[in-house]
C-alpha cells in the first residue's frame, strides 16, 4: 500500500492573499523551461486527492477559513509549503489591516520558500524538499 502511495505526489495550490507574483512563478515551474513535473509531481486542483499544499501570500481574513477547510480535506500524510516572503513572514504586507495571521499560526508548515517573488530555482528546490519529506512521512506512517 505504502509503496503504491509513494509514486507521484499531487499538489494543490491556493493563493491566500499574495500579489500573484509567486503564483505565476509557481505555474511557470510546471512549464517546459523548469518542469517540476519531472520529479513526478502533478498539479491537481482537488484537495481530497492532494498530498502537498502550496500556499502563497499572507493569510487574509477571508482566506483563513478556506485554508483550514482545504487542509482538513487533504488525506494524511500531507506536507505544507509556504511560498514567497509574504507567506513566510508577512513581507511587504506587514501591518496591513486585512492580513489576519501567518500560515504557520493556523496549520503546521514543513517547507518555507523565501523570496519576493520566489525565484523558480528556489521553488523547485522547495518542492523537491517537500517531496522527499512526504516520502519520508509515508515510510514512517
Amino acid at each position: 500500500m505504502n509503496k503504491a502511495l509513494a509514486r507521484s505526489p499531487w499538489f494543490l495550490h491556493y493563493d491566500a492573499g499574495g500579489c500573484n507574483g509567486c503564483d505565476i512563478e509557481l505555474l511557470a515551474c510546471l512549464t517546459p523551461r523548469y518542469d517540476v513535473e519531472r520529479f513526478g509531481i502533478v498539479n491537481k486542483g482537488n484537495p481530497k486527492l492532494a498530498d502537498i499544499l502550496l500556499v502563497v501570500g499572507p493569510i487574509t481574513r477571508k482566506s483563513k477559513p478556506v485554508i483550514e477547510n482545504l487542509y482538513g480535506q487533504m488525506p494524511e500524510p500531507k506536507v505544507v509549503v509556504a511560498v514567497g516572503s509574504c507567506c513566510v513572514e508577512r513581507g511587504i504586507f506587514d501591518g496591513c489591516y486585512g492580513v489576519e495571521c501567518l500560515l504557520d499560526e493556523i496549520i503546521p508548515v514543513d517547507v518555507y520558500i523565501p523570496g519576493c517573488a520566489a525565484r523558480p530555482g528556489t521553488i523547485i528546490e522547495g518542492i523537491k524538499k517537500a517531496i522527499d519529506l512526504w516520502r519520508a512521512k509515508i515510510e514512517g506512517h
Binding site: 493563493d15 491566500a16 492573499g17 499574495g18 501570500g57 499572507p58 487574509t60 481574513r61 477571508k62 482566506s63 478556506v66 511587504i92 504586507f93 501591518g95 496591513c96 489591516y97 486585512g98 492580513v99
Partner: peptide, 20 residues
C-alpha cells in the same frame, strides 16, 4: 475580496516607499 489586504491604507505613506 478573498485577497483584500488593505494596500490602499498602507499606501498612505511616504511616496517613495509607496512605489514598492
Amino acid at each position: 475580496g478573498y485577497l483584500h489586504k488593505g494596500l490602499e491604507k498602507a499606501m498612505e505613506n511616504d511616496y517613495i516607499k509607496d512605489i514598492y
